[in-house]
Computed example of a mutant assay.
Amino acid sequence: MGALEGSSILFITAHEFEDVEVLYPLLRFSEEGAAITITYPPKDMPGHFSPRSYAPDKPITGRFGTTIPFVVLEEGKRWRQAPTADVSVDDYDAVYLPGGFGPDAVRLHAPSRRLVAEAHRAGKVIASICHGPQIMISTDLHEGTDLIRGRRCTAYAAVQDDLKNAGGVFVDEPAVVDGNVVTGRVPDDLPEFCKAAIEVIAKTRA
């Protein structure tokens, strides 16, 4: 039995996500027994576009071409997708925010920010890597949370000034845990980040 057996994790992403930051955690968390749901802002939302061959009906697409729905991972086995409007944080133990350029759209989508805020206030684990913590910064600003403010955190180097300006304490480490918030630095740190997230999620469910 895996450390996350019976748990549910919500991924929130958008066009131009960092492919490996969705695929690796999806497989790693599901390997531990978690059920994964992926949601994203409506594709017709202003700002939710892919600069590469944009088309209104284009599937959510990562920076390196991975699509959601996935081509090689059957929906309903390790993962499923759901419209943001149909998602309730009561059904999840954690929310995960991958990086890439997807956070630019997610942080502009008020319903996504509210999901993150509601989950945080309910004591759920919020995990994010690379550019993902930018969503947490915007959630703090618009929803009055303390996902970054006053916490030790990490992210991609280009985001560290944003974290500091938002009241966070930037730590240049692969993964940082502060309460129910787990942040990671870059794709190379995914093993350490996922390990930390799994430990915190398992602990909060115990």
Results as ranks from 00 to 15, higher is better:
V200W: 00
N165V: 04
K164A: 11
T139Q: 09
V116E: 10
S138H: 15
V125S: 09
A110G: 10
V186A: 05
G168E: 04
T154A: 00
R114T: 15
A206Y: 03
C153E: 02
V176A: 06
T204N: 09
R107T: 05
R152P: 02
A157D: 09
C153A: 15
P111H: 06
L147K: 03
F193P: 08
A196D: 03
I135P: 08
P191E: 07
D162L: 02
I135G: 02
L163D: 01
D178K: 10
D140E: 11
Y156G: 10
D178N: 13
P174C: 07
I148D: 02
A110Y: 10
N180F: 00
R107Y: 00
D161P: 11
H131G: 07
R107K: 15
E118I: 06
A202T: 06
E118M: 07
D161K: 12
I135V: 15
P133N: 13
R107L: 00
D146T: 15
K164Q: 05
H131E: 11
A196Y: 01
E173R: 14
R149A: 14
Q160V: 05
G184N: 07
K124W: 01
R151K: 15
V159S: 01
A127S: 15
Q134D: 11
H131L: 06
S138W: 11
P111F: 01
V186D: 05
G150H: 12
